[in-house]
Design a protein around this nucleic acid. Structure first.
Lengths: 97, 97
DNA sequence: ATGTTATTATGTTATATTACTAAATAACAA
DNA sequence: TTGTTATTTAGTAATATAACATAATAACAT
């Protein structure tokens, strides 16, 4: 058994924490097809305030899961770590056991 | 873009939420070798109260990540979904980029 | 320059989480 | 039985998170 080193676990835990909210997990799934989507699309589909979606997107970006680009008036988000999709698939399989 | 269905995301998000704490993520990593470990080992290595570790283990078990068995005076925990290890590896690789 | 749309930042309140202490339970030893 | 060790449960206080309203910013159109 290793000795527990809090700091070395904090960064990785942050990634999972970011995924640990239904809205944020759903956003990641929407981006799993590799396509970009803009903030307004998420706002419309989820049905909450712009500010709330923006806050969730910031958390996902800070965790390193998303990247964004501003083009014209809109900000577009895409998945930065496609490996997360495999995990989601694995969990989906597990759910139907 | 799909319509957002909160309930269908809640269960899966719970799994990630469980992993989104440094102590709990560390516990899962310790079990990643496939071996069982008892509660007291985690308590000693992490250096917090028994009650705190027990609480974390309960969260991981409820998320479906761990299974436990009581043998004699000790309760032994093991990983119930080895696929999570692949994800942890993938994230570890990503971290060194 | 002014207005409009898209987005982010700030402040606030309600709720959830964390880690603790203390009490309860369960298995075994003396 | 009594005591001891391992673990869980319950209650509590500090801290963190969520979602909102509102203000600020940024790009484009008129």
């Amino acid at each position: 058994m290793q000795k527990f080193d809090r700091n070395s676990c904090l960064r990785e835990a942050e990634i999972f924490k970011a995924l640990g909210h239904p809205t944020r997990l759903w956003i990641v799934k929407q981006l799993a097809d590799g396509q970009e989507h803009c903030v307004c699309e998420f706002v419309e589909a989820v049905g909450v305030q712009f500010a709330t979606i923006s806050q969730h997107l910031t958390i996902l970006r800070q965790a390193g899961l998303l990247e964004s680009d501003k083009r014209g008036q809109s900000v577009y988000y895409r998945l930065s770590c496609p490996c997360i999709i495999d995990t989601l698939k694995c969990l989906a399989d597990k759910k139907t056991e």
